[in-house]
């Protein structure tokens, strides 16, 4: 079963075409990483899934149903969302940030507490943090809270839009480990956007390379590295490896 299917998706922003006639499927419970340079359209592609950006042409199916835009909120509650810097609500403490969706959607306090406990353990965050405010946390801690907030309602799909770009390598390493642990404990479809090939290779089951709104290659991680589909992909991989080496 496909978690997400893109059907001939195009998207125009003002006069420029950001995505052009893209079709592909995201498999249930796989980790798909979308990688590309700035302006390749990768973030736009991701935000089509939770309806923050609408296709100019084409349509998207989530679990084989067309997105019902008038009732998009209901769909979004089943899709976790994490962005760069986590964007925690600054006026809420950690507990309030994590539990907001549970609170406004009528989940019982007991269930909510249990879920908070589970999530904190999975991302390795001390419960003492629950009463702290976002500005008192480090970048990595904020991202862990962000993951918990996104996972509160146990969504089937988790969207990550370059969430770890600003973190230092050690923190990034730890948080990758926790993300994989989470996936092992609670398998779900994860779609992540990054410009970091190393991160993609480490996390992805499959990688999608996007350039100028067109898919350059969508394949198993091994195949991307060993059998680049075209000169752009080969060049892109070489550039990334050299950049890391320097």
């Amino acid at each position: 079963m496909n978690a997400v299917s893109y059907h001939k998706i195009s998207h125009n922003f003002e006069t420029t075409q950001v995505l052009s006639k893209i079709s592909f499927d995201i498999l249930k419970n796989e980790i798909l990483v979308i990688i590309g340079r700035s302006g390749s359209g990768k973030s736009t592609l991701l935000q089509m899934i939770n309806g923050l950006i609408l296709p100019t042409e084409g349509h998207i199916e989530i679990f084989e149903e067309k997105i019902d835009y008038p009732n998009i909120t209901k769909l979004r509650l089943g899709i976790g969302y994490l962005v760069q810097g986590a964007a925690l609500f600054p006026h809420m403490n950690v507990r309030q940030n994590i539990s907001i969706l549970a609170r406004i959607n009528g989940i019982s306090p007991e269930k909510t507490e249990l879920r908070i406990d589970t999530l904190l353990r999975l991302v390795d965050l001390d419960p003492a943090y629950l009463s702290k405010y976002p500005h008192q946390l480090s970048g990595g801690e904020q991202q862990r809270v962000g993951i918990c907030r996104a996972m509160m309602l146990d969504p089937k799909i988790f969207l990550l839009d370059e969430p770890f770009a600003a973190l230092d390598p050690t923190t990034k390493f730890e948080i990758h480990r926790e993300l994989l642990a989470l996936q092992k404990a609670e398998p779900r479809t994860i779609v992540m956007v990054t410009h970091d090939l190393q991160e993609a290779v480490k996390l992805a089951d499959r990688i999608l390379i996007l350039e100028k709104g067109v898919i350059q290659q969508l394949d198993q991680t091994g195949n991307i590295l060993n059998k680049p589909a075209n000169a752009f992909v080969a060049n892109f991989i070489r550039e990334q490896i050299i950049e890391k080496a320097i």
Binding site: R76, G80, A87
Partner: peptide
């Protein structure tokens, strides 16, 4: 901050 608004919408707030 527009990012906060986007995230609030994205995680499923009406």
């Amino acid at each position: 901050d527009p990012v906060l608004k986007k995230v609030a919408t994205g995680i499923g707030l009406t």
